[in-house]
Design a protein around this nucleic acid. Structure first.
Lengths: 341, 341
DNA sequence: CTGAAAGCGCTTACAG
DNA sequence: CTGAAAGCGCTTACAG
């Protein structure tokens, strides 16, 4: 389609001025006479001219475009983060491009290179907990990237990462969820999902254990199942747990890594005829759009994803080098009930 | 963070060659002696050099980056399209950036400009049906964009749009859904969601009406409610419809614009104590990840979003100027049943 | 196989 | 208020 692209030279010659002058009106500078500004704008409009942002980037060394790398967009959780970031970016005059996490996956060839080559004005990276060996490689990739553009992190960011960040305090969240359940009388509380992580004080397992300790409940390893964050994995995990235990030891409540895992657990409970919440309470995390539409509606944690994304953009633009903690709140619905005597 | 950026000149002087030679090894050209190639690569590696894609774009007039504009990412339907497009793009060596639909919304100031300025190698635009007046403005924006880069369309593309496209044949889809329901004995079939569109032969309403005609059923205007594509809107629409009708005229089946609307309808039915599927069959569209986890699991149409996204990328890259139709298939679950006598 | 030079389309001091 | 000129960091003929 694109015929010969028209350039600032075309506009300048048509308007009978220099390209410097065209550039000035393009950038809305004040020191241009009203008459020439008008003439230039008229030519721009007539020829439907759009300055090339890439030439602009070349000359001014700034592109007004940010990037965000997200693990997987198919979980709406990440779509919410993206939306929040993107809207804030637009407000500040930037565009936001999305890159898949695999861009950072150092198990592939030279992964961060593509990102580094793009000379973005800044990059947000949403990190999840990773197995430790992989983790160190990702950290290396992040440091590499940082030579080329400011980077701010989002999500489960270990304190050992010296990056500005908006981090989840997953520990306090889990601890609060356990408290919520123990106040409903639950004593056998399972926790499903996630990876077996290293020694981060903010990670979920710490909160889970603290919550149990607060209520003077034993930590029962059989109630802690690690799995990936999909519904299928959640269902399989609960299935495994229940199969491995005599029914009188079955948990009366399960905390799921996220709403997808919670959905899987609910489905598995349904298959087994275990009524929710009568015989099993379930709490999810992320408060996905579908949580209110499940049966029963799912109690979940709103992790303020859009706000988190927006805040990360602000840190990126302002250049503040600080780590903030994202807020969250428990959204009570019908999937949890007082434990039956 | 970014200190002085290192350039091709640094590498050239370090390696004792010209920048042309560095450029050659960078682009993997064959005509470089093994010795100099090795030396250059060694310097590149040591200095951790990454060529600027924007300088590259400037010089070569190609950026290897594509864009896609999507109405709203919060509906996972669009996340699936994006994922399909993005993965295909990566396979072909391109990156894919996401832009919000509002970039094209001509009710805002000079909307497509930002897109045009980016000189992408190509753009995919996912269009939905729009009220007619707005529609003509979008078409104008698309034509404008096309001066700057190839554009392919996805979604509900009216044939009057002379763009390469992967379009939904929504008419045949709706017609098939109506047939499916009439074969289950349904005669009072409602259709909820969407906008009152103009005269596109592929639009859903045409299929709905054809389906009714095939079964020699009357078109009952009270069964056709227009609304936006959210769960809330779906619930409100069904609520309005039922309120407006004596119960003996209530539909026995409802076709929803998409799964979100279907979820809203299911929730509204639940509030009214209308059992699904015993007293109301529901079919959705898009086959979202949560469809199998609703109660009952929702019958929906798989619209092959990832494939559609991937195919659009192929059309973009190959430059083929053709309109293709996206495939789809009905995924039967438990939300539809034979009508009760 | 290698290098010197022009050029991509802008912005940005610097003069005037 | 306006213009001439250099420069951003690459690629691409063109010579050799």
């Amino acid at each position: 389609m694109s015929s010969e692209n028209i350039t600032i030279y075309d506009i300048a010659s048509d308007a009978g001025v220099s390209i410097a002058t065209v550039s000035r009106v393009l950038r809305g500078e004040a020191n241009v006479s009203e008459a020439t500004r008008k003439k230039v704008l008229e030519v721009i409009d007539r020829r439907n001219y759009r300055p090339s942002s890439i030439a602009r980037g070349m000359a001014s060394k700034t592109t007004h475009s940010l990037g965000i790398v997200l693990p997987k967009l198919l979980n709406p959780h990440y779509a919410m983060i993206f939306t929040g970031a993107q809207e804030e970016a637009r407000k500040l005059g930037y565009t936001m491009s999305l890159f898949p996490w695999s861009s950072l996956d150092t198990r592939e060839y030279n992964p961060a290179a593509m990102l580094a080559e793009r000379r973005l004005d800044g990059l947000i990276v949403c990190v999840e907990y990773l197995p430790h060996d992989h983790d160190v490689q990702v950290l290396a990739a992040l440091r590499d990237l940082r030579q080329y553009m400011p980077v701010v992190l989002i999500g489960c960011v270990p304190p050992s990462y010296d990056f500005p960040a908006v981090t989840n305090n997953s520990a306090s969240m889990l601890q609060a969820i356990v408290r919520y359940l123990t106040e409903l009388g639950h004593e056998r509380i399972a926790f499903i999902g996630g990876v077996e992580e290293d020694n981060d004080p903010l990670r979920r397992d710490v909160g889970y254990e603290n919550g149990l300790r607060d209520a003077r409940l034993p930590y029962i390893a059989s109630y802690r199942i690690y799995c990936r964050g999909t519904a299928e994995d959640g269902a399989a995990a609960l299935n495994r747990m229940l199969d491995s235990l005599k029914p009188e030891y079955w948990p009366t409540a399960v905390i799921a890594l996220n709403d997808l895992v919670a959905m899987g657990c609910m489905a598995e409970a349904g298959r087994r005829g275990i009524a929710i919440p009568d015989r099993l309470s379930v709490v999810g995390c992320d408060n996905l759009f579908c949580a209110p539409y499940l049966t029963p509606p799912l109690t979940s944690v709103n992790t303020h994803q859009q706000q988190t994304g927006a805040r990360a953009v602000q840190l990126l633009i302002s250049g503040e080098d600080k780590q903030e903690t994202a807020g969250w709140d428990l959204v009570e619905r019908a999937s949890c009930a007082r434990v039956r005597p």
